[in-house]
Design a binder for these strands. Structure first.
Lengths: 342, 342
DNA sequence: CGCAGGCATTTAAACGGTTTAAGGAGATTT
DNA sequence: AAATCTCCTTAAACCGTTTAAATGCCTGCG
């Protein structure tokens, strides 16, 4: 590489000041059109590269937005991220992505890095056990935060997520209406607000149908296909096998269906299974998965929009924005059979 | 937010110079231990946040590494990314992630952004049709590039990827040894070096077994589950149905198995299917997927290591580093049946 | 002819760190 | 008491941009 081309390089070769060059490149009306064109042409010819750190040092806007979620490889977050990316792209914001794998330390390290880089804002799906101070650290240093998919108590930042209690009650009611009464709930944890809300939705639906809630049928676990697969083994070993399963998400559901199939049973006929999220893969699974649409794209888009609006000065109302989930009925659920397959 | 705490704030409250503070915070032996401790304590107390853009403006090292791949939601890249992330983390590098979705423009925009931010280096799985100049743009501006998973002709940057021709020949030979002679190859494109290599591996294996290559059995397409699902429909409509399918990757294979199952056939018995990559999900699929381990974690780890070494001055040898794939035989492949199921 | 006003450009001071040569204070040697 | 040596600390330049204020230069007008 020759030596770095900077504003002053262009300025000198053209016999103008760096101020003029700076203004010209940003299309300021302060500089004459003919000068502007000459400068732009020269910048291109020299292969000038704008130095954003220098600029942002001066302007204190970096054009960087941080996004941190549990695991970007999880398609649920993937779909949210895709929507965020699309929205931020339209406003030319660079986004920095990270997993926290539910480690509060890793998450805080990310927030600190982002602050050091002068991030303009952060969108996060907070790690389990995130102390409110970690979010305030960002806010107090002029970096607004938006929460997605999970809530934290004791903060008044904007939150975008699905209505979990309602969503799970949809799935549970669907199974009840098919005649099922022994319904397990598999995957996830009750340590997150999401987890508590979902369990609540499940319990409420059962109670309303006068079905006794059996705590043994609540089986927490990883929110992955692998987790579902293993839960299936456990479920099939219970003294009273459930006839239906409400799953934390589509991955768990697909894992369970694989586990059921591996045991020689037919999911959707011998045991009904519902997913959650309505991922792209849900309709391809065999049998096609009955699930609950959770509006990931909507969540991501709105969260990004809210942040951008906030950065541009509009006053977005804080507080929780709930997306209403919708039922997607496919082939993985079916009526209760009087003589369950063995 | 109060006002920003900077080096000078600490310096003033302690009655020392900013130089001392700067040196102390970075553990320079130039400053007395007792002074250092006092300064660090004060920095913590005031909630000082290091301003990396200011620092990097002076030092011209940003601690930022860019990573751009086709699609981070694709688990193949996900596994590579995870390994890269882990390796970069150990060296405290922040990484900026982006998809290019095989758009050369999007990829170039990313490289330019990264240059503006003063990125120290970039790891990329180049978009189809990437002109070598785009990579040179990075290198010429002092930002070394490392390629993963895909090659580009006419460059001498380090490349880390699996040995595709060899890998596909493993899968093809496995099917041939099971007695199959009508073997389709599904998914991907022949416009990438990877695609050409894989097709070559398939053709070579067939020829060596004296099997005529039928171009109609090469069915390019998306590298997704959805793509596989749709290809299954096409395959089953062929006048002479293939008895085995070599798939571009595990996603396509799982999609095909779902398509086969939906048509009432049993994958692994009626039609053998091989995947590629050995994703985590491969062993959970039903039936468990026979596939080729492609060393994603190894690729990611080595690539990140190579970049870090390069940044630290060691001279990593350029050129292609091939990872040797290995066969993983499971239940989705089986011997040719004399009277294929209808 | 002197001056107000408009336009195009320049000056110079930030922004918040890092770096290095030079300075200062004691302690030690001569 | 002067000279030398060790440690610590600091002043000042620098990184590449932005921006408020200042400067020329013209033109038009009373």
């Amino acid at each position: 590489m020759a030596q770095k081309i900077k504003l002053s390089t262009i300025a000198e070769t053209l016999g103008v000041s760096t101020a003029t060059v700076s203004l010209a490149l940003r299309d300021s009306p302060l500089v004459a059109a003919v000068t502007r064109d000459k400068i732009k042409e020269q910048a291109r010819a020299l292969g000038y590269i704008y130095n954003r750190r220098a600029a942002s040092l001066r302007t204190s806007r970096s054009g960087i937005v941080g996004v941190v979620v549990h695991d970007i490889m999880n398609p649920f977050y993937g779909e949210i991220l895709k929507a965020i990316e699309a929205e931020l792209d339209r406003d030319r914001q660079t986004f920095i992505l990270s997993n926290h794998y539910d480690s509060v330390e890793k998450q805080r390290a990310f927030i600190e890095t982002l602050l050091q880089l002068g991030g303009d804002g952060v969108i996060m799906s907070p790690a389990i056990g995130t102390p409110p101070e970690d979010i305030r650290l960002a806010e107090d240093n002029g970096m607004p935060a938006i929460l997605v998919a999970r809530s934290i108590e004791g903060l008044d930042v904007p939150i975008f997520r699905g209505d979990d209690a309602y969503g799970i009650s949809l799935a549970t009611n669907h199974l009840i209406s098919l005649g099922h009464r022994c319904i397990a709930m598999v995957g996830g944890t009750d340590q997150t607000s999401t987890g508590r809300d979902r369990y609540q939705g499940y319990v409420t639906a059962l109670r309303k149908a006068n079905i006794e809630v059996d705590p043994n049928l609540r089986i927490p676990g990883p929110r992955t296909m692998q987790g579902g697969f293993e839960a299936a083994v456990h479920l099939l070993s219970l003294p009273q096998k459930p006839t239906a399963v409400v799953c934390w998400n589509d991955l768990v559901a697909i894992g369970i269906m694989n586990g059921i199939a591996r045991a020689g049973l037919v999911p959707g006929r011998d045991i009904s299974v519902t997913g959650y999220d309505d991922l792209e893969d849900a309709s391809i699974a065999t049998p096609a998965l009955t699930t609950v649409w959770n509006g990931q794209a909507e969540v991501g888009r709105s969260a990004a929009r809210a942040l951008l609006d906030k950065l541009n000065g509009s006053h977005e109302p804080d507080g929780i924005h709930l997306i209403k989930p919708e039922m997607r009925i496919r082939q993985s659920t079916g009526p209760l059979r009087s003589t369950p397959h063995d």
